[in-house]
Design a protein around this nucleic acid. Structure first.
Lengths: 158, 158
DNA sequence: TCTACATTCTCTAGTAACTAGAGGATCAAG
DNA sequence: CTTGATCCTCTAGTTACTAGAGAATGTAGA
C-alpha cells in the first residue's frame, strides 16, 4: 500500500491532482489509515497512469470517464472506445488545420514589420484590419500548460 | 452614437462580451444615456474590431492589452508589437508540432482497433501503456469554442 | 523524549475568457 | 397602454487543475 506522495512519484501526477481525480469520481475512494491518510494499491497506480496518458493524448476527463467505465466492464463492446478515439483524432486534425491558418496569417503580419513607431506599425494595422486577411481564421487558444503566474495587472477603464 | 446591441452586430461580438472587455479595461467606459445605457462612438467599434480580430488570431487578452496600449501611444516604438506577434507565432508553431505528435499517436492507436469487446480492446490497451508510444507527446487541450452545455454528469466515487 | 521538518488532511479560491441566468428597468412600436 | 425587445447589474458556471490556509500526523536525528 502506497501513500499519496509515493503514488504521485510513480505516476508523475501531482498530489492535489490525484485527490482531484478522486473527487471527480475517476478513481474510487481509496482505503485510509487510522489517521485518515489515503492508501493506494497497485491497481490505483495503473488507473492513474491510464488517466495521465489519456490526458497527455488530449482526451477530456469526460472521455476518460467513459473509457474507464468501458475497461471496468470487459464485456461491453469496444465500439465506444474506438468512437471516442476517432472523434478525438478528428478534433486534433481540425485544430491543426485551424492553427496552420493562423500560422500563415501571423507569418504574413510579422513579415510586414519594418520597425519604426506604433503610428505606422504594420503589425498593429494588420491586426485592426481583418479584411486584409487571406483566409478565414477562427478562434483559438494556444494554451499549453507551461505558464505559472499570470499576475493580473488590473487597470481602471482609462 | 450606438447602443450596445448595435455595436455587437457591427463587431460580431456578443453583448456580454463587450461589457466584459470594458470591465477588463480593454475598452474605456463609454458614455451613458440618462437612464444608464451605454453609448458607443465609432472609435469604440474600431477598438472592439481590433480586439476581435486579435482574439481570432489567438492572442491572449494580456497581449491585446499591450497592443492596444501601444496603439494608443503612437510615438512608442513598434518593437513590442513585433515581439508579441513573433512570440505568438512561435507558440502557434510549437503547438502545431505538439498536435502532430498527438495525431500520429492517435492514428496508430485507432488503426489497431479490430472491434470486439473491451477486454481485448487495443485502444484501451494503448491508452494504458505509454511505453508503447513512438514518441513523447505532451499535454494538450484541443478545446475550440464550439460546445455549449457540457452538463456535469456527477457520479459518486464508484 | 524532544524537536524539526515532511507529508498529509480539508476547504476555499484562483486561473482564461467568456457564457448563462436572475431579477428588474427602460425603450420603441402598434 | 401594453407587449416584447433591449438594456442594466450581479452572481455563478465552464475545464482541469493549482495554490494556499490552517491543522494534524508521521519520521528522523540529537
Amino acid at each position: 500500500m502506497l501513500a499519496i506522495g509515493a503514488v504521485a512519484k510513480r505516476t508523475g501526477l501531482k498530489v492535489p491532482t490525484i485527490r482531484f481525480y478522486e473527487q471527480e469520481g475517476l478513481l474510487p475512494a481509496p482505503e485510509r489509515t487510522e489517521s485518515g491518510r489515503r492508501l493506494y494499491a497497485e491497481g490505483d497506480v495503473r488507473r492513474l497512469s491510464f488517466i495521465r496518458h489519456a490526458r497527455a493524448l488530449g482526451f477530456e476527463l469526460e472521455d476518460i470517464r467513459s473509457l474507464l467505465d468501458l475497461s471496468d466492464d470487459p464485456d461491453r463492446p469496444c465500439d465506444e472506445a474506438d468512437r471516442i478515439a476517432r472523434a478525438h483524432l478528428v478534433a486534433v486534425e481540425s485544430r491543426i488545420a485551424q492553427l496552420r491558418a493562423l500560422q500563415r496569417e501571423l507569418t504574413r503580419i510579422v513579415k510586414s514589420c519594418a520597425g519604426g513607431v506604433a503610428s505606422d506599425c504594420r503589425v498593429i494595422d494588420a491586426l485592426g484590419d481583418h479584411g486584409a486577411c487571406e483566409q478565414e481564421h477562427e478562434p483559438s487558444s494556444t494554451r499549453a500548460r507551461t505558464r505559472q503566474k499570470p499576475q493580473r495587472a488590473k487597470r481602471a477603464g482609462r
